[in-house]
Design a protein around this nucleic acid. Structure first.
Length: 570
RNA sequence: CGGAAUGUAGCUCAGCCUGGUAGAGCACUACGUUCGGGACGUAGAGGCCAUGGGUUCAAAUCCCGUCAUUCCGACCA
């Protein structure tokens, strides 16, 4: 490709709307342009990178016996009524009417479509297991898209769905797919992507993993154990609560005027928050008020709590707290008239400070085991920096991460609701079990930039670089330079290399700055001084590696360098 | 969906407070001089100052509404 013909304007300055490195370089480098909030057009350089990522994904999916299909972006309401998701998914699902006033939607995921496809196509146990996948446009009407390609409304996604006749078979395949994912990320040049435990959210199902690139640019909170390499989304992460056993002392009232918060109490009583129990009241959307008790230094993880109470809720008002029989600011759950959930952090503590349900007073020596023996003990703690790893006991760390992929064991949620069955060996009708596997292609592209860049632009891994070789010529006014550069370009192209040739004859500064934004790994430079000796220069993007090679050696050199470099991405 | 900020040329911004004929740099076009890390000169082209309504002799500038963008939160495979 000649730069003079490439439609992809470069910008010197940071676009006002961009904050993330990847967003900035994608705009500055002429990879994409915004069309609407969270909707972009991609230009050739980005399309080339994306195509390479897609092909890597394709190869790895095919290796684990995936069959590529293509399902529609637009679907009728009826399909989503079958699974119940037309009603259960919120405004993230874009709904509209066609000309006959028929309810339609833009696909945000394709469990319904694939189940509908597979249930008519596959009816015998002999066809199992199988996996169908596609690489296709999705639309999610995000309330707040941001970060360039990191969080968009329209995006390309690889989504795969596997069907099985037993859990053992599904588990086995799930592991194969997990391994394929690691291979994909390695081949795309981001081997540091880790798989972490996560919540299954609206997808339903029991087990789910996310693939996260740990970086400050991410918006997910990931709990990391550096000692035993355990990772979990903070939505589901757990930790240990160690407390030295103490003898239970009798409950005792202590006057604490105006000390309504944990921070007040810490100061007033000169005790750490870890020796306190905090009571929080919530009221569900059905109007039920309930209380939860966590250790003073811990935040309630409302997602965990939601899964326990199985409904949405808000903080209770003071009136609702009073009605439940507690005093706001000095609340205690002893004797309250509502359901009580106690976090393990409190259940494992001894002689804690807690409210007394009496204005201006707290209680000392609160012990759940003794004082509320029938309490429901649950895990609703939000893990924080420095908490103890549940597996190995080391200190946990909180990191930010970008979720580039995920996998779910869905079970029979869709096959059952959509009446997908097969006939087993005994002629009996059975419901298959299902898992799904996603990778956000555009998000992965953006994530690679987050992970691989310098102050001048992206540093693309060779496996997904828009072009393999960047060719620059210093001083195109010199006929000899021009002739050599043109010939080199023609020879490299003929030999099958992907070359971006800057034939514009601009100054070195402009050429190098633009080349850096294209992030192409191997750079050849035709320049007067070296040319006098029959040599041209080469340079490797993002490293100090550079040198001179004779013109005759360029093709073999390029071949060897590329072969060698590609070994990293196999 | 709440809170905040910002909308002026393709891009980055100034001008607004204190109302009086729309500015710079980059990018673009032409010519010339340059040519190893974003060169320079001359000439040119490019704007309904987001939008709708006020106030005023007069509005980019002051007031109100709307829309859009960004940030923080809520939400979210």
């Amino acid at each position: 490709m000649r730069v003079s013909r490439l439609i992809s304007k470069k910008h010197k300055e940071k676009p006002a709307e961009a904050q993330l490195i990847s967003h900035i370089y994608l705009l500055r480098g002429g990879y994409m342009r915004p069309v609407a909030n969270g909707i972009y057009s991609l230009l050739l350089p980005a399309v080339r990178v994306q195509t390479k990522i897609e092909n890597i994904i394709r190869e790895e999916m095919n290796k684990i016996d995936g069959q590529e299909v293509k399902m529609p972006v637009v679907m009728p309401r009826e399909l989503w009524d079958e699974s119940g998701r037309w009603d259960s998914v919120g405004s993230e699902l874009l709904r509209f009417k066609d000309r006959t006033q028929h309810d339609m939607l833009l696909g945000m995921t394709h469990e319904e479509a694939v189940t509908a496809l597979a249930r008519t196509e596959v009816t015998s146990y002999k066809d199992y297991p199988f996996m169908l996948y596609q690489i296709q446009t999705k639309f999610r009407d995000e309330a707040r898209s941001r970060g360039g390609l990191i969080r968009v409304r329209e995006f390309t996604m690889k989504d795969a769905y596997s069907f099985h006749t037993s859990w053992a078979d599904l588990d086995n395949y799930y592991e194969k797919c997990a391994a394929a994912y690691h291979t994909i990320f390695r081949r795309c040049g981001v081997p540091e992507v880790v798989s972490i435990q996560s919540d299954s959210g609206m997808m339903g199902g029991k087990v789910a993993h996310e693939y996260q690139l740990l970086t400050d640019a991410g918006e997910d909170r990931v709990v990391v154990c550096d000692a035993c390499h355990t990772y979990a989304n903070s939505e589901v992460a757990t930790c240990q609560f160690k407390a030295e056993p103490e003898e239970m002392k009798p409950l005792e009232e202590v006057e604490t005027p105006n000390a309504k918060t944990i921070a007040d109490l810490e100061k007033f009583l000169n005790m750490p928050a870890t020796k306190m129990a905090k009571t929080v009241f919530y009221t569900s959307e059905k109007g039920e008020t309930f209380a939860v008790v966590v250790r003073g230094d811990i935040e309630v993880n409302e997602l965990k709590l939601q899964k326990i109470v199985r409904c949405l809720f808000n903080f209770a008002t003071d009136e609702e707290v009073l009605k439940a029989g507690a005093v706001p600011g000095f609340a205690n759950v002893i004797g309250v008239k509502c359901r009580v959930f106690v976090d393990a952090s409190v259940a494992n503590g001894y002689n804690l400070i807690c409210g007394s349900n009496k204005e201006g007073w707290h209680l000392k020596n609160f012990n759940i085991a003794r004082d509320i023996p029938h309490a429901t003990v649950v895990d609703i703690a939000t893990v924080k920096d420095g908490d103890i790893c549940p597996k190995c006991g080391a200190k946990l760390r909180i990191s930010r991460g970008i979720e580039v992929g995920n996998i779910f064991k869905l079970g029979t949620k869709y096959t059952e609701s959509m009446h997908m069955t097969y006939t087993d060996e005994k002629g009996q009708e059975q419901t298959p079990i299902m898992a799904c596997y996603g990778i956000g292609v555009g998000r992965l592209l953006g994530s690679v930039i987050e992970a691989r860049h310098d102050d001048y632009g992206p540093i693309w891994p060779l496996s997904i670089a828009p072009w393999q070789i960047q060719l620059n010529a210093m001083g195109m006014a010199n006929p000899q330079i021009k002739e050599v550069a043109e010939r080199l370009y023609a020879d490299l192209e003929t030999a099958g290399f992907e070359v971006l040739y800057d034939d514009r004859g601009l100054s070195a500064g402009v050429q190098f700055a633009d080349a850096d934004l294209m992030g192409i790994p191997l750079r050849f430079i035709v320049a007067p001084r070296a040319l006098e000796k029959g040599m041209i220069e080469y340079k490797v993007r993002g490293t100090d590696e550079n040198g001179l090679i004779s013109i005759d050696e360029v093709l073999p050199f390029a071949q060897k360098w590329i072969d060698e470099e590609m070994k990293k991405y196999r």
